[in-house]
Amino acid sequence: MNGPDFAHLVRLSDDTGLYEHAEGPLPRIEHGYCLDDVARGLVVLSREPHLSAELTALAEQYLAFVAYAQSEDGRFHNRLGPARVWLDEPGLGDWWGRALWGLGTAAARSPVPAVRQAALECFDRGARHRPPSVRTMAFAALGAAEVLAADPVHAPAAELLGDITSYVGAPRPDENWPWPENRLFYANAVLPEALIAAGDLLSDDKIRDDGLRLLDWLLAVESTDFHLSPVPAGGWSLGESRPAFDQQPIEAAAMADACARAYRITADPRWLAGVRRSIAWFNGDNDLGTVMHDEQTGGGYDGLTPDGPNINQGAESTLALISTMQHLRTLLESTG
């Protein structure tokens, strides 16, 4: 695979949003939609430098879904049933964080002025909240970083991004386990990436260096024989066996994002190793030596099990594939 393929993302989408689940490559319409995935879709489409008219329209459709999911007080619904009825109450779960990530990215990068303005208004409405979860906050911080990079005096984004340090905390003094949690869970690299972004944009070298230290440790822990070996869906801590399964594409995607940011900020070529390993994980350089995407459909497989890939091609895994393959540009730019 030479770059992001959006064909399966289009296949999973309709005039409402993005279907969450698939059986093989076919959308499971009966399971409906979730904001989590639509917001991630908005992230990957917004950060593409050149979108076709079809994909530009899809990005606007995703933005409309995110805006529809937002309540007047800035919280969000997450699950929309196939009958287009919300199945939950507005809240501050991971979907809130990913919604702000998507909105911030659209506000900063969309080529359409009306999209940028609408996305920023929704971002500002949501940015007043502070969630209970560190990962939720980290996802939101990435959206705040996008807004702040585009507008360095945007106060709500600066305040939200500045608060990430109180959620993550400093690395522990234990060299074997500097991670601020007792266990690795999911999308782990989003925590150091948020710190790196905050330190960079808020001109705080200590916060940036704390994030780089955590990312360096995480890349080492999630690598085996120079290939990526992500922690499993159930998490991992010292003393537990590796490799472990089921490995989730979101873990490789989070690593690619964090290492690409670290490279852009430091120009240190060691971070390119993390980007390469993440891309290679999808292309078969993983614990089972199996390709983690369908070259014909453009879909990402839902996980790496002890017996091989789960060949269902749902939204989360496909977006993780697209997100990771977007960083091929980082590798190409690094080699001139």
Rank of each mutant, 00 (worst) to 15 (best):
L272S: 10
P131H: 07
G91Q: 00
H227D: 09
Y62M: 08
T105K: 07
E60A: 12
G274C: 01
R242Q: 14
Y263S: 02
W281H: 01
D15H: 11
A57P: 05
S133D: 15
L35F: 07
A256D: 15
A262W: 00
G234T: 12
I207V: 15
M1A: 06
P173S: 11
M292E: 05
R242Y: 10
N182A: 14
P309V: 00
A267Y: 09
T335Y: 03
G81K: 12
D174I: 03
V291N: 01
P156M: 00
R208W: 04
A170F: 06
P25R: 06
R261Q: 11
G239E: 04
T266I: 14
G91M: 08
A194L: 05
A260S: 09
L148F: 08
A170L: 14
A83F: 09
L202Q: 04
H129Q: 06
D36L: 05
W281E: 11
R208Q: 06
Q61F: 00
A99P: 07
G102L: 06
A258Q: 08
E60D: 13
L331W: 11
M255S: 11
R213A: 15
M137Y: 06
Q247V: 03
F76S: 06
A252S: 08
G3S: 15
G239T: 04
L195V: 11
P173I: 10
F6V: 05
H50A: 14
E48G: 03
T266N: 09
A233F: 03
D225F: 09
W217Y: 03
S278V: 07
I196G: 03
G17K: 00
R183I: 07
N310V: 01
L100Y: 12
N312P: 03
G289N: 12
E23W: 13
A57V: 00
L160G: 02
E72D: 15
L55E: 11
L319G: 02
A118M: 12
L304Y: 05
S166C: 08
V153S: 12
W281I: 09
W101N: 01
L51N: 10
L92E: 09
E295N: 07
A53R: 07
E175F: 10
R135Q: 10
P156W: 00
N182W: 13
E23I: 08
V66Y: 01
R329Y: 02
G3C: 04
D209Q: 15
G126L: 11
L18W: 07
N283T: 14
E159H: 11
T224V: 02
D246S: 13
I164F: 09
A127M: 03
G336W: 13
D151W: 05
F76P: 01
E60V: 01
H8V: 07
T335G: 07
L195R: 09
R261V: 13
A145R: 01
A315L: 10
M325E: 06
A320M: 06
P131T: 15
A22I: 08
P173A: 04
I207N: 01
A252Q: 02
E30H: 12
Y167D: 04
F65T: 03
F65A: 04
L55Q: 15
L215V: 01
S46N: 04
W101P: 05
L87Y: 05
A22D: 04
D302E: 12
P243E: 05
V134L: 13
F65M: 05
H293G: 07
D246C: 14
L160P: 00
D268C: 10
S203D: 15
W101F: 15
F65L: 03
R130V: 09
R11S: 14
D204Y: 06
V85I: 13
P243L: 00
P173W: 10
